[in-house]
Amino acid sequence: MTNNKIFKELEDFLGTHFIYTYDNGWEYEWYAKNDHTVDYRIHGGMVAGRWVTDQEANIVKLTDGVFKITWTEPTGTDVALDFMPNESKLHGVIFFPKWVHEHPEITVCYQNEHIDLMEKSRLQYETYPKYVVPEFATITYIGNAGQNNNEVISEAPYQGMTDDIRDGKYFDKDYKKIKK
């Protein structure tokens, strides 16, 4: 289900579902749900198993085919991603608060159901110094899910999920989740 379209305008980017692996080996899945909201699952790295829906974000076109997305999570983590889908690349910078770096297990959940815990932890533990992770990544999957498709990120990550998605075993031709 890899999409071979050429990205130019923001409208080309919105509704796109990506899987990418940072050069440090961390694997992420990310969906441009609409012009102000993103969903994502984390499959590798220090917060593997974390997933989030309806995260408010700033999404802009920098130049033809290059898009910047930024947001702050309830954990206090700041994220800045620069997508270059025509080159199957992105650059991300994640600014983890000290508490997330020291207690990542607290955040490994479906965040939407644990906002109070994220906010409590943010106040209970130290924020600084931030743990900054700047990394390039290779995009290994691009799918055209359409905007506001709540089936794209709708369950916790599991071992082999990203392979199932890349192999066409997770979504049908209409980008609906295949029931297992």
Rank of each mutant, 00 (worst) to 15 (best):
A57H: 04
A57R: 03
A57W: 03
A57N: 05
A57D: 03
A57T: 03
A57L: 07
N58D: 14
N58W: 13
I59G: 03
I59C: 02
I59H: 02
I59T: 03
I59S: 00
V60D: 12
V60K: 09
V60W: 10
V60P: 11
V60I: 14
V60G: 11
V60S: 13
K61Q: 12
K61N: 10
K61S: 12
K61L: 11
K61C: 10
L62S: 11
L62N: 15
L62A: 12
T63Y: 09
T63G: 07
T63K: 10
T63A: 13
T63Q: 12
T63R: 14
D64G: 11
D64L: 06
G65D: 09
G65F: 08
G65C: 04
G65P: 11
G65E: 08
G65K: 01
V66H: 11
V66E: 15
V66R: 06
V66P: 07
F67Y: 07
F67N: 04
F67T: 06
F67K: 02
F67G: 05
F67R: 04
K68G: 13
K68N: 14
K68T: 10
K68M: 15
K68E: 15
K68L: 12
K68Q: 15
I69Y: 03
I69M: 05
I69K: 00
I69W: 04
T70A: 13
T70D: 14
T70V: 11
T70C: 12
T70W: 13
T70I: 12
T70Y: 11
T70S: 15
W71Q: 07
W71A: 06
W71G: 06
T72I: 09
T72Q: 07
T72E: 12
E73M: 05
E73W: 01
E73D: 02
E73I: 03
E73G: 03
P74Q: 04
P74V: 06
T75Y: 00
T75N: 02
T75E: 00
G76S: 07
G76R: 00
G76Q: 04
G76F: 01
G76C: 00
G76T: 00
T77W: 01
T77K: 00
D78P: 10
D78T: 15
D78W: 15
D78I: 13
D78N: 12
D78Y: 14
V79I: 07
V79A: 06
V79R: 02
V79N: 00
V79D: 01
A80F: 13
A80E: 15
A80R: 14
A80Q: 14
A80W: 11
A80I: 14
A80V: 14
L81H: 09
L81N: 06
L81D: 05
L81I: 11
D82T: 14
D82H: 15
D82A: 14
D82P: 10
F83M: 05
F83Y: 09
F83V: 04
F83P: 05
M84T: 11
M84C: 11
M84I: 09
M84K: 08
M84A: 08
M84R: 08
P85Y: 02
P85M: 01
P85G: 06
N86W: 07
N86L: 08
N86R: 03
N86M: 08
E87V: 07
E87R: 06
S88E: 09
S88I: 09
S88V: 06
K89V: 06
K89Y: 10
K89T: 06
K89W: 12
